[in-house]
């Protein structure tokens, strides 16, 4: 274990999030069993009031978790000089087998919590708590994710030993190796760009269709998710090369370093936000038929889709800028 302030801050966030998750899951169980709007009893009123607390708490946990996600990656990057062989976050995360799972769980928590908050806001706009059961069923699913994330993160930090020799991005992201990261790295650049352009187009078309004709929202959400994964693959396969001006450096984490102008944040932040909003829009679309939401949801979904498209647009601009401003010539 390395005794470091950022690590303690991260564990603090996870600890608090875990507490909130446990407690709200407990409350969620009560809601699923006892919730009855027709009942004017004190218990029902108290439950209704507790939903306020849960929403506020979750809002904060979500904010803290989003910050913690950034801090986690940033700190991993920073700690690289403590480990033999580590040049960037990849090396730090590779020090033991819990590093990457911790990161993935954190990312999953970010998306799940974002969707939950979007549903929560919609629920509170309806006059008869239309989504409350859904929401609390969601919390019961979300809680294990948050707890698992915290536990894996703790295991990871507890197992950090500075004397370990770790392997970094130059070993992980080469086409020569086996494994998913190498497959992705080996993705031909031209194909990667075509795929990225294609899913971008799908997002743009389905987004435009839902904004103008009010249809295709589901398609938009699905395209958004596809775009997310394609974009990650394209970053590894080709976009990173442009940023580094280097024909063989495929790392998706070195992008976050000051040497590269923190360009990674410019790419990842809009991509993550766009995806979270697209997911939220898709989930809300499921409930568009609920009577008390019929007048509210379509406008909200439009807004989410609009914002999501702006975010994806920013990601697109960042990608194009990376390509245009690069010295590197891949397609000669």
């Amino acid at each position: 274990m390395i005794f470091q302030t950022p690590i303690m801050a991260l564990l603090l966030v996870s600890g608090l999030a875990g507490l909130v998750a446990l407690w709200s899951a407990w409350f969620g169980l009560r809601v699923l069993r006892r919730w009855n709007l027709a009942d004017g009893s004190r218990e029902q009123l108290e439950m209704e009031r507790q939903t306020h607390l849960i929403s506020t708490l979750f809002g904060f946990v979500m904010l803290a978790e989003a910050l913690a996600l950034l801090l986690f990656v940033y700190n991993a990057d920073r700690m690289a000089n403590l480990f033999v062989g580590a040049m960037c976050a990849v090396g730090t995360l590779n020090v033991n087998e819990y590093g990457f799972p911790a990161l993935y769980l954190k990312v999953a928590t970010f998306f799940a919590a974002a969707v939950w908050l979007i549903v929560d806001r919609a629920d509170r706009a309806g006059r008869d708590y239309p989504l409350t059961r859904v929401k609390y069923a969601g919390i019961i699913l979300l809680a294990p994710l948050i707890l698992a994330g915290g536990a894996v993160e703790l295991t990871y930090f507890a197992g950090l030993e500075t004397d370990v020799i770790t392997s970094c991005c130059s070993k992980l992201f080469t086409p020569a190796n086996e494994g998913l990261s190498s497959e992705v790295t080996g993705l031909p650049p031209a194909l990667a760009l075509w795929l990225l352009g294609g899913s971008g187009l799908a997002v743009a078309l389905s987004g435009a269709a839902s904004l103008w004709w009010g249809r295709g929202q589901m398609l938009f959400a699905v395209s958004g998710v596809v775009l997310f994964f394609v974009a990650l693959a394209a970053i590894i396969s080709i976009i990173s090369l442009y940023v580094y001006d280097h024909p063989n450096h495929h790392c998706p984490f070195c992008l976050l370093q000051p040497e590269h102008g923190y360009y990674g944040y410019v790419l990842y932040l809009p991509l993550f936000f766009g995806t979270a909003l697209a997911l939220g829009a898709g989930v809300l679309q499921v409930f568009v038929g609920r009577p008390s939401l019929r007048d509210i949801l379509p406008a909200r979904i439009r807004k989410l889709i609009g914002l999501s498209m702006v975010a994806f647009g920013l990601f697109g601009l960042a990608t194009i800028w990376a390509i245009v401003s690069s010295q590197l010539i891949v397609f000669g």
């Binding site: 709007l37 027709a38 004017g40 009123l45 209704e48 009031r49 509170r124 006059r127 008869d128 708590y129």
Partner: peptide
């Protein structure tokens, strides 16, 4: 109005 949530 008697069954509405508090916020309404």
């Amino acid at each position: 109005v008697s069954g509405l949530p508090e916020s309404f």
